[in-house]
Design a protein around this nucleic acid. Structure first.
Length: 878
RNA sequence: GGGCGCGUAGCUCAGCGGGAGAGCACUACGUUGACAUCGUAGGGGUCGCUGGUUCAAUCCCAGCCGCGCCCACCA
C-alpha cells in the first residue's frame, strides 16, 4: 500500500541503486541494437553542482532515458576534466592556508598534492550528478589525465607537430601576471572601464622646440616605445616620416614610420608604438622592423630594460610616475576622460598584459577548414540552427591557438630540448632520447619542456579518447561519432569547435551529428549566476525541498529554445504538486483494486470511456515522442502534464467512479483499463520523472523495471469515442459553469455523474435545484438533441421530474444581467466571424477546412445567441 | 563597431499566419474514503510602439523604443 504522502527522498534513495546494480545504465557493446551515444561534457573535477549543470545533465538524461526506451543501445559516457588552472588554484589556496608556496614544494611534490586532493574530493560532482538521477554508464567514467587519455594527448601533439600544425613561436600572448601563465584569447574578458587618455609631446630630433603629440591610455608603456606611427596620407606629419623623435624619460632615439594602421581621425593621428606590449603595435613593429623592448617581468613589474627610477614599480605605480614626470617636463599636453575596454583574466580577475614569450601554438585555421565545411554541408547540425552563425563567425576568423600554459597541473608538453636547443617532440622520454641520439650521434641529456597544455586541448579529444583511441577498440568503432552533444552556448568556442577540429582531423568523421545548444540559467535580472554575485540557486537544495523529479520536470518545461531561463521556485512547486497528484491517483487506483493485467488488450475495450482513454494515451505517446525527437522538452512536459492531471485524473478517473461503484463486468474492464492507462502514463513520464514513475510502476504490479520498458505502443482510437466524450465534457462543463455562476447554495450541490451504459454516458443530476438550473439554461448552452448522440440529453431531461419555480432558487436580476452580458459577448463573436466569412478573399484563399470551421462556429454562435435570448425571455416570464 | 536573442495576464513563462494559453498569485464556492501539495467556477491581456506584406498578423518583413548576451586591436 502506498504511503499517504509522497516522499520524494525515500524513492530516490530506493531506485537509483537498484537501476545501477541491475546494469540498466550500461552500454552493451555486443548488442545488436542501434547505438545511441552522448558524450557527457566532463565537469571540472573541482566543481560542485550548480543549476546550470542541473539543466544540461538533466537534458542529457531525458534523451538517454528516452532512447533507452526506444530500444537503442545507449552509451552516456561520463567523466571529469582536470581543469588545469582551476584545480591548481584550488590546491594552491589550500596550501596557502598552511603557509606553503607551491614553488617551495617543487613541481613533483605539488603535482602529488593535487592528485591527493583529487582522490579525496575530486569525485564530489559525480556523486551530485547521481542525485540528479543521471543514468550514465559510470563504470566507464574517465578523467582527462587518465593514462589512456594522456597517451591520446601525447599522440595528438606529436602527430600535429610532425604535420606542422603545432609549432613553437615567439609572439605576444595574453599574459596573466597573477597566475604567471599565458592564457588564450577566450580566457580574456574585455571589461569596459572609465579611464583617461593622456596626450604626450615627443620632441622631434633636429627640430628644436617641435613635438609630435601622441595619445595613449597606457602611459607606462612609453618606457618600451620604439617608434611613432603616422598615416602615410596624413599631411600633418608627412614631413617628419623617416625622422626620429627622442623618447622622453628614456632618451631613446626612435623612428617615425608611416603605416596604414594609424588612423588620422583617432587621437592626434600619431600613435606611439610599443611592439612588445600591444597586439597592434606588434604587427606594425614587424612591418617596420622596430625594436621590441620588453619592459615588464612575469609579474608585470617594470624590469631592467627601463630606466633605473622606474625599475621594480608595478604597472599602476609606473603609470603615476610617468605621468608626473612628463608633466614636470612640460610634455603632458592634455588629459581627457575616456572609456575603454581593458582585458582581464577570467580566472584571476587581474588585468592581462600582452607579453612577448615563447609559446606553443596550434594552427587552428587549417584545422578549422574541414570543421566549417562539416557544418555547412550538414554533417553536423546545430539545434537551434542560428547558433551555426556564431560557430561560423568564430571559426572563419580563428587565430592561432596558444596551447602552452605555465602551470604544473596538466598534460606536460611532450617536447625535449637538447644541449643546443634542438627540440625533440616524441611520445615518451625514451623516444626522445632515441631521437636525440640519432640526431647527435651520441646519447645526450635532454630537458623536457616545463609547460603543460591548455585544459581544452585534452577536452577536444574527449569524443574519441574516452573510447580508447588511438587503439582500435570495439567501443570506438561502435560509439563514434556520437549522436548529440548537449551544451550551453558559452562553450561553443572553447570546446565544441575544438572537438570538431580534432575529431575530423583524427577520426575522419565529425564527433557528433547534432549539437543541441540549450539556454543558460540566469537569475531574476537575467545575469549569469555565479558564486561571487551570490545569486546562485543550489539544485541540491531544490531537490531536497521539492524532490528530484519535480526539479527535472521543471527544467524540462522551461527548456524552450532560444531564451534564457530565469528560474522561479514557484514553478518547481507547481510541478512538485503534479507529482503529488499522480501519487494520489496511483493510491486511488490501488484502493480500487486496479492492477496491471497482462492479458488486458487495450484495443478490445467495450466501453466508450475506456476506448477513449486508450486513444488519448496513444495521442499523448505520439506527441511526447515527437517532442523528444525534436528536443522540445517543454512540449513533452506540457503534454504529459495536461494528460496526467487533466485527461487522466480530472476526467477519466471521475467518469469511471460510477462504473467502479456499480461493479460487474464493466467495472472489471475499467479497472484493467485504469491500471493500463496509468502504467502507460508512468512509462511516458519516466524519462522526465524517473523515480516517481518507477515507484508507482512497481506498486501497480508492473513487470520488470520501468527504466527498461519499451515506449508505449497504444492503439489509436478509431471508434469515434473521442468525439462522444468531447461532447460529454462540453455538457458537463456548461452545467458546472451554470451552477457556479448562479451561486447555488452548498446544499444544492450538483453531483454530476456519468454512468456508462450500453450507449453513451448519461448525465444524472441529483438534486431538484440543479434540475431547475439546468432546465433554465440547458436550452441556451448550444447543445441540442440533434448534436448529441441519440438519447443523451433527452435522458437527462426525462429525469427532471421535479421542477421548482426558478425564483425560489436564483436571483433573477443577477441572472438577467449575466444572460445579457453573454448575449453581447456572443454577438461580438458573431460579428467577427461574419465579417471574416463575408470577405471574398477569405473564402477564396483560405484553406477549405478553415473556412468550414468558421462556418460551423458561426452557426454555433448564432444558435447560442438565440437560445440565450430565449432563456432571457423565459426568465422575464417568471 | 559587428552579431544574436528577448519584450504575451500581477509574477515566471509557453505558443508563433486563420477562435489569446499554462503554472503561481487573486476572487467565490466546496473537504462524510485518491489528492487542501486538493476540487469546481471566475476575474484579469488593443500579445512593446509604428509602418509594410497578406483575404487574414501576437506570429512574417522594416524601422523605432526598452532589456540582455556574444564577438571585436583601436590610440
Amino acid at each position: 500500500m502506498l504511503e499517504k504522502t509522497y516522499d520524494p527522498k525515500a524513492i530516490e534513495e530506493k531506485h537509483y541503486p537498484r537501476w545501477e546494480e541491475a546494469g540498466t545504465f550500461a552500454a552493451d557493446v555486443g548488442s545488436g541494437a542501434v547505438p545511441y551515444t552522448i558524450m557527457m561534457p566532463p565537469p571540472n573535477v573541482t566543481g560542485s553542482l550548480h543549476i546550470g549543470h542541473a539543466l544540461t545533465f538533466s537534458i542529457q538524461d531525458f534523451l538517454i532515458r528516452y532512447q533507452r526506451k526506444a530500444a537503442k543501445d545507449v552509451l552516456w559516457q561520463p567523466g571529469t576534466d582536470h581543469a588545469g588552472i582551476a584545480t591548481q588554484m584550488v590546491v594552491e589556496r589550500q596550501l596557502a592556508e598552511r603557509q606553503i608556496n607551491r614553488r617551495d614544494l617543487g613541481r613533483d611534490a605539488f603535482v602529488e598534492k593535487v592528485w591527493e586532493w583529487k582522490a579525496e574530493s575530486g569525485g564530489t560532482i559525480i556523486h551530485q550528478l547521481r542525485s540528479l538521477g543521471a543514468s550514465a554508464d559510470w563504470p566507464r567514467e574517465r578523467f582527462t589525465m587518465d593514462e589512456g587519455l594522456s597517451a591520446a594527448v601525447r599522440k595528438v601533439f606529436v602527430d600535429l607537430h610532425k604535420q606542422g600544425l603545432i609549432y613553437r613561436d615567439k609572439r605576444l600572448v595574453n599574459w596573466d601576471p597573477k597566475l604567471r601563465t599565458a592564457v588564450s584569447d577566450l580566457e580574456v574578458q574585455q571589461i569596459e572601464q572609465k579611464g583617461k587618455i593622456w596626450h604626450f609631446r615627443y620632441p622631434i630630433e633636429g627640430d628644436e622646440g617641435r613635438y609630435v603629440v601622441v595619445a595613449t591610455t597606457r602611459p607606462e608603456t612609453m618606457l618600451g616605445d620604439t617608434g611613432v606611427a603616422v598615416h602615410p596620407e596624413d599631411d600633418r606629419y608627412r614631413d617628419i616620416v623617416g625622422k626620429h623623435v627622442i623618447l622622453p624619460l628614456v632618451g631613446r632615439r626612435i623612428p617615425v614610420v608611416a603605416d596604414e594602421y594609424s588612423d588620422p581621425e583617432k587621437g592626434t593621428g600619431a600613435v606611439k608604438m610599443t611592439p612588445a606590449h600591444d597586439f597592434n603595435d606588434f604587427e606594425v613593429g614587424r612591418r617596420h622592423s622596430l625594436e621590441m623592448i620588453n619592459i615588464f617581468d612575469a609579474g608585470a613589474r617594470v624590469n631592467e630594460n627601463a630606466p633605473e627610477p622606474y625599475q621594480g614599480l608595478s604597472r599602476e605605480d609606473a603609470r603615476k610616475k610617468v605621468v608626473a614626470d612628463m608633466e614636470a617636463l612640460g610634455l603632458l599636453e592634455a588629459v581627457e576622460d575616456h572609456a575603454n575596454v581593458v582585458p582581464h583574466g577570467d580566472r584571476s580577475g587581474v588585468v592581462i598584459e600582452p607579453w612577448l614569450t615563447d609559446q606553443w601554438y596550434c594552427d587552428a585555421a587549417t584545422l578549422a577548414k574541414p570543421a566549417i565545411e562539416a557544418v555547412e554541408t550538414g554533417k553536423t547540425v546545430f539545434v537551434p540552427k542560428n547558433w551555426e552563425n556564431t560557430y561560423f563567425e568564430w571559426m572563419r576568423n580563428i587565430q592561432p591557438w596558444c596551447i602552452s600554459r605555465q602551470l604544473w597541473w596538466g598534460h606536460r608538453i611532450p617536447a625535449w630540448y637538447g644541449p643546443d636547443g634542438t627540440v625533440f617532440v616524441e611520445m615518451s622520454d625514451a623516444d626522445a632520447k632515441a631521437a636525440a641520439e640519432a640526431h647527435y650521434g651520441e646519447a645526450v641529456d635532454l630537458i623536457q619542456d616545463e609547460d603543460v597544455l591548455d585544459t581544452w586541448f585534452s577536452s577536444a579529444l574527449w569524443p574519441f579518447s574516452t573510447l580508447g583511441w588511438p587503439d582500435k577498440t570495439p567501443e570506438l568503432d561502435r560509439y563514434y561519432p556520437g549522436d548529440v552533444l548537449v551544451t550551453g552556448f558559452d562553450i561553443i568556442f572553447f570546446w565544441v569547435a575544438r572537438m570538431m577540429m580534432m575529431g575530423i582531423h583524427f577520426m575522419d568523421e565529425v564527433p557528433f551529428k547534432t549539437v543541441y545548444i540549450h539556454a543558460l540559467v540566469r537569475d531574476a535580472k537575467g545575469a549569469k549566476m555565479s558564486k561571487s554575485k551570490g545569486n546562485v540557486m543550489d539544485p541540491l537544495d531544490l531537490i531536497d525541498k521539492f524532490g528530484c523529479d519535480a526539479l527535472r520536470f521543471t527544467l524540462a518545461a522551461m527548456a524552450a529554445q532560444g531564451r534564457d531561463i530565469k528560474l522561479a521556485e514557484s514553478r518547481i512547486e507547481g510541478y512538485r504538486n503534479f507529482a503529488t497528484k499522480l501519487w494520489n491517483a496511483a493510491r486511488y487506483a490501488e484502493m480500487n483494486g486496479c492492477a496491471l493485467d497482462p492479458s488486458f488488450d487495450p484495443a478490445a475495450c467495450k466501453q466508450t470511456v475506456n476506448r477513449w482513454i486508450v486513444g488519448e494515451v496513444a495521442a499523448t505517446a505520439e506527441a511526447v515522442s515527437v517532442a523528444f525527437e525534436a528536443y522540445r522538452f517543454n512540449d513533452a512536459a506540457n503534454v504529459l502534464y495536461q494528460f496526467g492531471w487533466g485527461t487522466f485524473c480530472d476526467w477519466y478517473l471521475e467518469f469511471t467512479k460510477p462504473i467502479l461503484a456499480a461493479g460487474g463486468e464493466d467495472a472489471a474492464e475499467t479497472k484493467a483499463a485504469t491500471a493500463w492507462a496509468l502504467g502507460e502514463l508512468l512509462n511516458m513520464l519516466s524519462p522526465l520523472m524517473p523515480y516517481l514513475a518507477e515507484e508507482l510502476w512497481e506498486n501497480l504490479g508492473g513487470e520488470g523495471m520501468l527504466i527498461n520498458r519499451p515506449w508505449s505502443k497504444a492503439p489509436k482510437d478509431t471508434s469515434g469515442a473521442a468525439e462522444e466524450m468531447n461532447w460529454v465534457v462540453r455538457l458537463i462543463t456548461e452545467v458546472r459553469s451554470i451552477r457556479s455562476e448562479m451561486n447555488v447554495p452548498a446544499a444544492a450541490k450538483i453531483d454530476l455523474r456519468l454512468k456508462e451504459a450500453n450507449d453513451l454516458s448519461r448525465a444524472r443530476l441529483n438534486t431538484h435545484e440543479d434540475l431547475v438550473l439546468k432546465l433554465a439554461r440547458l436550452g441556451s448552452i448550444g447543445i441540442d438533441d440533434g448534436e448529441a448522440p441519440a438519447g443523451s440529453v433527452q435522458s437527462v431531461l426525462d429525469e427532471a421530474t421535479i421542477i421548482l419555480p426558478i425564483a425560489d432558487v436564483i436571483d433573477i436580476s443577477a441572472e438577467r444581467d449575466r444572460l445579457t452580458k453573454d448575449i453581447a459577448k456572443t454577438e461580438a463573436e458573431i460579428g467577427k466571424i461574419d465579417k471574416k466569412l463575408s470577405n471574398p478573399g477569405f473564402v477564396a484563399k483560405a484553406p477549405e477546412e478553415v473556412v468550414e470551421e468558421n462556418r460551423e462556429r458561426l452557426a454555433e454562435e448564432q444558435a447560442r445567441r438565440n437560445k440565450l435570448a430565449a432563456a432571457l425571455d423565459r426568465l422575464a416570464a417568471v
